[in-house]
Each structure stands twice: as structure tokens, then as C-alpha cells.
Nucleic acid binder design. Sequence first.
DNA 1: CTTGCAATGACTGAT
DNA 2: TCATTGCAAG
Length: 756
Amino acid sequence: MNYLETLNPQQLEAVKNTEGPSMVIAGAGSGKTRVLTYRIAYLIEKGVDPFNILALTFTNKAAKEMKIRIAEIIGESEAKNLTMGTFHSVFARILRHHSDKMGYPSNFTIYDTQDSRSLLRTIIKELKLDDKTYKPNLVHGRISSAKNNLISAAGYEANTDIVAEDRMSGKPRLFEIYKAYEKRCFKAGAMDFDDLLYKTNVLMRDHPDVLHFYQHRFKYILVDEYQDTNYSQYLIVKKLADVFHNICVVGDDAQSIYSFRGANIENILNFKKDYSDAKTFKLEQNYRSTQTIVNAANSIIAKNQEQIQKNVWTSNDEGNKIKVIRTLTDNEEGKVVTNMIFDTKMNEQAAHSDFAILYRTNAQSRSFEEALRKLNLPYKIYGGLSFYQRKEIKDLLGYFRLTANPQDEEALKRVINYPKRGIGKTSIEKVIVAANHYDVGLWDVLSDPVKFPCGLAGATQNKINAFVTAIKSYRVELEKVDGYELAQTIAKSSGILKELYDDKSPEGVSRYENIQALLAGIKEFTESVGENETAFLSDFMVDVALLTDADDEKDEDKDKITLMTIHASKGLEFPYVFIVGLEENLFPSQMALNSRSELEEERRLFYVALTRAEKKATLSYATSRYRWGNLITSEPSRFIEEIDTEFLEVANPSRGGGRSLNQVNLEKRVAKSTKTIFSDKARKLKKVSSVDTKPKSGTAANLLNLKVGYNVVHEKFGKGKVIGLEGTPPEKATVFFPKVGNKQLLLKFARLEVLS
DNA sequence: CTTGCAATGACTGAT
DNA sequence: TCATTGCAAG
């Protein structure tokens, strides 16, 4: 057990106290993952069967990495039997095992957020409700938080407080939507993300034998990032640990950043109430960051009221001060940050993977991508539109889903007319009406038109029959042939492969490549099982809905600059961290300014961001940025001021030389007095007046007469001179604009006004 | 039923 | 700005 010698006394205690309830409060960078890993390894070495251990992590990637480390210590054959993963993936598997008890097929579909919202949109339309009052996102949020608090549709309707709340907010029929949604999901054999936790609770509540089985199987339970669990998750863990009480939760209240997902910080604050004999271990030594970073982070988090007292410290070097950078625009912010990365890389021989750019919202990535591309620096963006959410991927997965579970309504709607086969919207609506009328699933109506007539024209019915036959033929193969083989068959015979192959536009080519990448992934998956086993497509589909980009990182992505939201960066560390967009209304988000608790969560988010950095942290903000196409002015985030000034160094790259903090404050005051440059209203007014006074695009006569040397005006680029033309009559022009340089413009689209 | 264009609303965060 | 949706015409 040599590995134990590498631990400090507190870490060692947390590892060795395996019996009974314990809570590990782990400050940022305090070796939390090591404690978890070694605790599991230690348990196994002491003779605990890995089969009896359940470890719940925050991401699948974390689980995978931890498993590898444990395997290195105790051997792979042992580590294999550990149950380890996110709440969602672990309990999805358990639910599949017992799905019959709940009336679900074992191949039930997992609806992702897109699917849930699309179904809600359909239901809102069917109930003839206004989707401006009942915005699908909002409705989904309401239903989601109900489920996270274990409130069913019936419970929702019966809860007078909730119903009153909905009535107050002008949405009295929300409970009807929830009821319809619950029913439709069930009929489609589908669970949404929240169901995976909710139904696990239901399973354990209604089937004591199942609960009993897992209570005795999971003798040792470990939960990582406990501060970010919601009520539903909390209760699952509590029930499972109810027999042996060997529960170890690890977390840091200062890093609780998921309340929007129902996470309840009280879970960690109240742990001692549930388990009065709980031991608490505090890990306070930070091994990750410089003193400057640790102390700066402490000075921020001290501004929060709600917290468990702790003293995070480090024996690392003092390190550099935290640089604060101010730029004029978001684009300049991209350039400056990128240049700094380039310089640092050169001066300190750093790898690309040593750098991370962290932002509050996904939409901020654009200016950094552009700047990085210009300097030819490799980067990888996490989050945002993930691979599995791309249209072409979801389309093909739609066929797979339908093959595994033909009742899957969202998959059906997605692919029944893609590629185009002449089954349009009206036909599908007729089918939905019939399905609701007979109270059966869409697939039942499609596959048995005699029993469930829906009044479609004969030609359309024939097309539907052909589609149904195709899906049925895939189903026959589902648990017969190798998953890769079936995936290939479907991709070809559905027509998707041809459709994308024929599209030679750059986007089309990339979509085709994505499909090939998905197929390659399935191939890899089917080859990963033992020689004498066959991996079916249904096996691949089991948790594909729960995969994220971070889960299947490719080798070629290893040495790249990381771009991600701060939320996604939790648990990671980088030598050089750039926290960008530190502006009021962006970070902290304007949605969080209404209450102290929300603002405190933003502050914890900033704390998380800063504590990702090992060597150097840099903060940046822009005094103006584009938002929805409007240029708005912004002022520096209050979080910059909250850091003790002794840790900061204010640099101004656009003017050269540093400035004092007083100057920042001065500028803040100036910024406050400046109004939005182009408000939304101004933009609309401008648009209207431009319609009144001048043609939308150059008049036909004007454009036909366009010649090289003419002066023109472009809406965005200003005045310019035509220096080249293509086509007769001219279709494309090269125009020199003094402000932005040469631009190629399609006359069809560019709103050029001809001056001479 | 499909196509093309205008209008519209989205930007917190993610399993 | 960008992607999705609604509407008119073929």
C-alpha cells in the first residue's frame, strides 16, 4: 500500500475511515480525486468485493479516469466489477434491468433536452395554448424542477401552492401540459433526463424487493461533488445507504454551481443532521495553484455569507500576479487573449493543452475561435452543440432509436420524412390525431392502418407502409447481427448516406464526415467486446443519449487549447487560465442579480474558474460587445473589484503599459454614464427608416450598371470602391472598403447602394 | 407536398 | 448574428 504514503494526514484519515458515514470537505485543488481513488483501492485491498461498491461521479469522463487509476493499483480484473459513473448512467442501467416492473420496454429511449422540448411544443399546440405564454423552455423548466422534487403530474395538479403559483404567473393550465407530457413519454417508451432519477425513486419506493437487493449489494457508497446533488439524487443515496450506513460524500460547498439544475446546497450543509455519527474530514491544503491564486480566490469567496468555514492554503510559490486586461470590443478581447497565449507558449515552452479560455456563456466562444484560427493555434471547444446533438447525427440516431424502440415518437417524427419521401406535416398530424383518439402510440397507428384508420390518401398510405416495412426489417436484425453491420445497413438503406454524399457544399461534406465518424465510433464499440461476444446496436444505444463530447476524446485532440464554459471546467486544472468576459450583466449574469443567493452562486462560479489555474490566471473584459447583433457597452464585473488589489496587475495591451486600479474605477464610472450605443429599439427604428428612404438592395437598374471604379455604400462596411466584377449581368463584386479592406460580395444579398 | 423567403426570437449553465 | 418557423406560391 505504498500509495498511502503519498497522502497528507487529513487525506490519509479520509481514506482509512471506511466504516460508517463520512463527509469530506475538499477545498479546490486539495487532492479530492486522489482521496476518492485511494479510498476505493484501499477498500478493495482490505477485502471488500468491488461488486459491493458504488461510486457516483459528476461526469462519465471522471469515472473512466478514476477507474483506470484504480486498475493501476489493484489490477484490472478487480476494477472491472466496480459500479461507477454518473447518477444518470448508473441508474439508467438499473432501470433497464427492471423496466418491466414499471411498464417500460428495456430498450426505452432516453429523451434529451431537445426531444423533451419538441414534445412539449407539440403538446402545447395540441392543447391550443399560446406558445408565447407557455414557452416550451419555461414549461420544461417547471416540469423538470417538479420531477427533481419527486412531484408527479398528479401530485403537481393536487398541490395547491404550485397550481396557485402557476395561476399567478398566468399559466393556469401548466398542470395539463405536464399530465399530457408524462403520458406521451410513457406511451413512447421514453424517459427524459429527470425521469432517470425520478423513476429510480419510484422503482425503489414501489418495489421493496428491488430496494432491498441494491441496499445489500451496495455496501459502500461514495458520492463525488455532493454539493451539486438535487433532492431526487439525495433521496436515492439516502435510501441505498440505509442498511449499512457506509456512505462517504465528497464535496465543497464553495463550488456549488448547479442550483439551476435543482442542486441543493443544503444536502451537504445538512449531512450531519441525517447522520449524527458522521465524521468530517477537511482537506485544506491546495496542491494545485500558486499562493497568489489561492489567496485571491479566498478573498472572493469570503464575500459569501453561506459557507462551511475552512482555510484553504498552499505551500506553493507565490507566483505571478493576476493580470487584468481591458479591451474595447469582444473581438479585440479575442485577439489580445490569443496573442498572450501565443507569447506565453513561446516564452515558457508551454504546450497548447496547458491553456484554457473559460467563459460564462457558450455564445462567447466565437471571437476566440476566430482569433485562434488566424494564428493557426489548435483548439477544442467543449459543450455548446455537442457531436451527438448535430442534426445529421440525431437523424441517423433517430433511425437507430426507432429500430430499438418503434414507439419513440420524437425519433419517428424526425425521420419519417427524412430523407424526403413525401410524408408531410399534414399526414403526420392526422396520424397523431388518430393516435390520441384511439389512445395508442404513433407506431401502432402506422403499422396497423386497418385497426386504426386515420384517413390518409392511398398514395401516402403506401409510402408509410414502405417506411414501416423498412423499420421492421431493421428490427429483425437488432439482436442478431453485429451492431456496426446493422448501423451500416440502416445508414445506406434509409438513404441518409446518399443524401449527404450528394451534397457537395462544405457543410454537406462535413456532415457526411460526421456520419462516417459516428459509424467509426460504433465500429470501435462493437470491436471493444470480447472475441466470442457480439455487440448489438441496441447495446450501443443504451447510453448514447448520456454521452458528451468530453467522454470520447480523441488522441489528436490531446494537445489543444481548451475553450469551455466555467461550468464545464469543474474538476479540471490548467497551468494557464484565461477567464474572459468579466462584465456586469454577463458575469455575474443579469439573471442572477435578483437575489443574494443567486449572486452568491455566480461568485462561487468565479471561484471555481479562478481555482482551475495552476501557474497564471488572467482576467479580461471588453467595454463593448455584440449581443444579438447589437453593440452594447458594458462595465467591468464587480468580481474584479472583489479581489484584493495586492493580487492584481492591471495591464492595458491596447495602449501599452500598466494602469492603476483607480483608472479602472474611473472608467467604470464613465462606462456607467454611457448609454447603450445601439439599443434594440434603435436598431428597429433604423431598419424601418431604411425601408422608407432607400431600396433594400440596389435597384436592378443600378446593379446592372455597376462598373469597376464605382463608389458604393454598404450597410455595415460603409463607403467603398468596386475593384472587380464577375458575371454578366454582374453577380459578384469585389469591393475595397477603407475600413475593413477587400470584400467579396454577392449582389443578390449585399445591400449595396450605388453612388456613382 | 415542396420550395424559398420573410419574420422571429434566442443567450445563462448541462446530465 | 444565427437558426428555426410561418407563409405564399408552384
